[in-house]
């Protein structure tokens, strides 16, 4: 357990030195700030647009950090051979993989927390400077429900990290990145797969779509941005089930990643 935490700590420390997450966080914050300018161009819907853009940048940049750091987590150590010295220490390969995962998830949580603070700062500024248009806002500016959307974004990003880590245990970083981005995209078409039966008549096609729906990571349920922005309720049940699903699915990926990684030869 301690070894795992130490590996996680090293990941965190290394990522603090890495420029990639910084630039992503900065970019996200810039985008949120820019949404203020964009909102000046739209009548009445400014708050909605700021929230849309803020949540979308968190989701996209969180995902990009997860992918670009996630694919390098294991493969970089293998490629540069730093793993040789590490695995000669009293660390099991399982602890190594899980530690890497936890380290990156911790990094992401911190990054998203920073983005969240910046997001609320922009919203607070809007709230203070807003005039009568406040009356048509579908939800208050500093709506705590935004945190539900952010929580699910973090959960989604944790699943994406597991996907990236899984691929990086056996393929090159570039291929891992492509596969992860592919699965991420597919994951957001989950509902289309689920509703395939309403569009197509062919029973085998519907069956295939069903299987894909359940086997591929289904990321659409993690996306409650629109509901939250419009001030519609998000059922606690839904959040709980989706978090449980994220945990189980990440578990599937991590188990597979560990199983593959334990059998590998490091030439």
């Amino acid at each position: 357990m301690r070894a795992m935490v130490l590996v996680a700590g090293a990941v965190f420390r290394e990522s603090v030195r890495d420029r990639v997450p910084y630039s992503m966080v900065m970019f996200a914050i810039l985008l949120m700030a820019a949404s203020y300018a964009i909102s000046q161009l739209t009548a009445g819907q400014d708050m909605k647009i700021i929230k849309d853009l803020g949540l979308a940048s968190m989701s996209v940049f969180g995902m990009l950090i997860a992918v670009f750091l996630g694919i390098g987590l294991v493969s970089k150590e293998v490629e540069r051979k730093s793993i040789f010295a590490l695995l000669a220490k009293p660390v099991t390969r399982t602890q190594f993989v899980l530690g890497k995962y936890l380290g990156l998830v911790a990094t992401l949580v911190i990054n998203l927390a920073v983005m969240t603070l910046a997001f609320y700062a922009v919203l607070a500024f809007m709230d203070l400077t807003a005039g009568p248009e406040k009356l048509v806002w579908p939800a208050p500016a500093l709506d705590p429900r935004l945190l539900i959307a952010i929580l699910l974004i973090i959960a989604e990003v944790a699943v994406v990290t597991a996907v990236a880590l899984f691929f990086s245990t056996f393929s090159s970083p570039l291929l891992s990145a492509l596969l992860t981005l592919g699965l991420w995209t597919a994951g957001h078409f989950g509902s289309d797969l689920r509703n395939f039966g309403t569009v197509v008549d062919s029973a085998p096609m519907i069956a295939i779509a069903r299987v894909l729906y359940y086997v591929l990571p289904n990321l659409a349920p993690f996306d409650v941005k629109a509901e939250v922005v419009h001030g519609f309720p998000v059922a606690a049940r839904h959040v709980a089930y989706t978090l449980a699903y994220g945990g189980l699915y990440a578990g599937v990926l991590l188990t597979a990643a560990v199983a593959i990684f334990r059998r590998r030869d490091f030439k």
Binding site: R13, E14, D18, K81, S82, A85, A88, P90, V91
Partner: peptide, 20 residues
Amino acid sequence: VEVRRRIGYLPENPYFYDDL
């Protein structure tokens, strides 16, 4: 793991973490 506690290993052309 018990063995690894008591051994040391210098890999050929060792490489560690650039940013540390």
